[in-house]
Design a protein around this nucleic acid. Structure first.
Lengths: 121, 121
DNA sequence: ATACTCCCTGGAGCCCCCTCCAAGTCAAGT
DNA sequence: ACTTGACTTGGAGGGGGCTCCAGGGAGTAT
C-alpha cells in the first residue's frame, strides 16, 4: 500500500505518517526499489496501534520507547509490560478527570434546561 | 486570597492563573488598592471550574467563549447551553476513544502476563 | 532606610505535535 | 522526449497552552 492509501485508510495525513516513522513510533516501513514506502500488514498494524494510542492522548515519547523496546527483541517484554501498565494508569487517571468534568457539564446543562423550561412556561 | 494562595489551593501556578485571566477564561479578578489580585469566592469558583474543564481537555477557545457569553448577561443563556452541550459531545467522544485504547492496553498487558507466566513455569 | 518578599505587566520563550515547503527522484502516459 | 503526478528528504513554520523573565511597585521586618 502507498502512503496515500494508508493515510486514507486510517485518517492520518501522509505527513503525519512520515513523522511517526521519523520519530520512531512506527518501525521503518518497507520500501520499493525506488525508495517509495510500501506498507505491508505489519506496518499497517503499527499505524493503527499508534493512531489509537495517540487519539487517547498517549505521549509520543512513551510510544517511541515502546516501539524501540519492541525492536530490541523478546528480552524487553517485561519492560514493555511495565510501560504499558504505566500508560494504562495515566489513561485511567485522565478518564477519571473527564468523568468528573462530564458530571459537572451535565449538572450545568440541566440547570440551563430548567431555566429554559421556566422561561417557556 | 492572594494569587499564591489560590495557586496552592487549586494546584495551578500563579503564571497560569494570570494567563487564564489574561485570555479571558476567568473574568477580571478583584484587586486591592495597590493593584494586587484579591480572589473572592466567585473568582475561586471560576478558577475551579476552569481547572476542571481544562483537565478534561476542553479547549481554551471554547472556555473563552463561555466566559464571554456569561459576562454578557442572561440573554446568552441559550447560547451557553448550546456551547456546553457541544463540549459534552466532544468530551464523550474523547472518552470513547480512551475506552477503546484502554481495552487495547488491557488486552496487550494480559498477553504479556501470559508470556511472563509461561517463562516462570 | 534598607532589605526582603510578594506582587504587577508585557513580551519572549518553550514544549509538543504536527504541518508545510523546497528541491529533487521516479513511473506512467502521450 | 517530455509532462504529470505522486513520492522522497531535511528543515522550517505554526498553533495551543503554558512558563519564564525583566523591570518595576508595595507592604512588612529589622
Amino acid at each position: 500500500m502507498t502512503i496515500k492509501e494508508v493515510s486514507e485508510k486510517y485518517g492520518l495525513t501522509p505527513d503525519t505518517l512520515r513523522y511517526y516513522e521519523r520519530v520512531g513510533i512506527i518501525p521503518p516501513v518497507p520500501r520499493k526499489k525506488s525508495g517509495v514506502r510500501d506498507y505491508d500488514e505489519a506496518a499497517c498494524g503499527w499505524v493503527e496501534l499508534m493512531k489509537c494510542m495517540r487519539s487517547a492522548g498517549v505521549r509520543i515519547e512513551a510510544l517511541i520507547e515502546y516501539s524501540s523496546l519492541f525492536q530490541q527483541g523478546d528480552e524487553t517484554a517485561e519492560a514493555r509490560k511495565e510501560l504499558l501498565m504505566e500508560q494504562r494508569r495515566q489513561l485511567m487517571e485522565r478518564m477519571e478527570d473527564m468523568r468528573r468534568s462530564l458530571d459537572r457539564l451535565n449538572r450545568k446543562i440541566e440547570r440551563y434546561e430548567r431555566l429554559t423550561g421556566k422561561a417557556e412556561s
